[in-house]
């Protein structure tokens, strides 16, 4: 146990460097996933079409083992930063996609009909009515996605990209059990810290009217709890 704590002190500089790269990689992958998933999910939710296809593709992507994606990637584009980034984006993308799609599609039909009837264009309905109403659910998708990505980013080492906490986690021979535990601990803390930060952003971004609505009808608050960090 003492060696576990000692590890932090003895390797502070290394841990700090690996943690920073770990964060940068995770943030970048999350950003790409979000940038791809929100427009697509919003568009499909707005159209109220292709829902079966989206849910199916989402489920398939979600069930793909990340290691398998890395292995397939090795054949397609080799080792390195691209490989791990693609794998992490594929991991995070479906969560944001399905949540965005579900949230936009689930906006009260009466509200959308009123908007249409009073002369809002499809784009105005999407940007001024549907997306603002969808913020809480989209945000919960992003938070869960972050937890998954940050907890999986250690696989960078297996994708041939050095510099993340994976360097320690995958090298028990070199760093010992205390080293692996220390790196895993940091990975878990990153998951929680990111989730908390995003939670603050969600609070700030969620329109007051929606919070009041959720408070009035607790059953309508369909925000799923973030998944537990699947740290290695």
């Amino acid at each position: 146990m003492s060696s576990y704590f000692a590890f932090f002190g003895d390797n502070a500089a290394l841990l700090a460097e690996l943690t920073l790269v770990h964060i940068l990689l995770s943030v970048f992958a999350l950003a790409v996933a979000v940038v791809l998933a929100i427009p697509l999910g919003a568009w499909i939710g707005h159209l109220h079409r292709f829902s079966f296809a989206v849910v199916s593709v989402g489920n398939v992507l979600r069930s793909l083992p990340t290691l398998a994606i890395i292995a397939i990637g090795l054949a397609l584009y080799g080792f390195g930063i691209i490989n791990i980034t693609v794998a992490l984006v594929i991991l995070g993308f479906p969560l944001v996609l399905t949540n965005t799609f579900t949230a936009v599609e689930g906006v009260d039909p009466g509200t959308v009909e009123a908007a249409r009837g009073m002369g809002m264009t499809g784009w105005q309905i999407l940007t001024r009515v549907e997306l603002p109403s969808a913020i809480p659910l989209i945000s919960s998708g992003i938070r869960t996605s972050w937890v998954y990505i940050v907890a999986t980013a250690y696989l960078a080492t297996f994708a041939g990209q050095q510099g993340t906490l994976g360097d320690i986690i995958s090298n028990i021979e070199g760093y010992g059990l205390s080293g692996v535990l220390a790196a895993a601990t940091i990975s878990i803390l990153l998951a929680f810290a990111g989730d908390a930060l995003l939670g603050l952003a969600e609070r700030a971004l969620t329109p007051t009217g929606l919070r009041l609505l959720a408070e009035r009808t607790p059953a309508a608050d369909a925000e799923p709890a973030p998944a537990a960090p699947a740290a290695a």
Binding site: D108, P109, G110, T111, V112, E113, A114, A115, R116, G117, M118, G119, M120, R128, V129, P132, S133, P207, T208, G209, L210, L213
Partner: peptide, 26 residues
Amino acid sequence: RRDIGYVIQQVGLFPHMTIAGNIGVI
């Protein structure tokens, strides 16, 4: 449509906007 007032049973107010925001949309 902007020249036709539209009122429906479900009302369909925009929950994230204030009352003033709702009235002032169009």
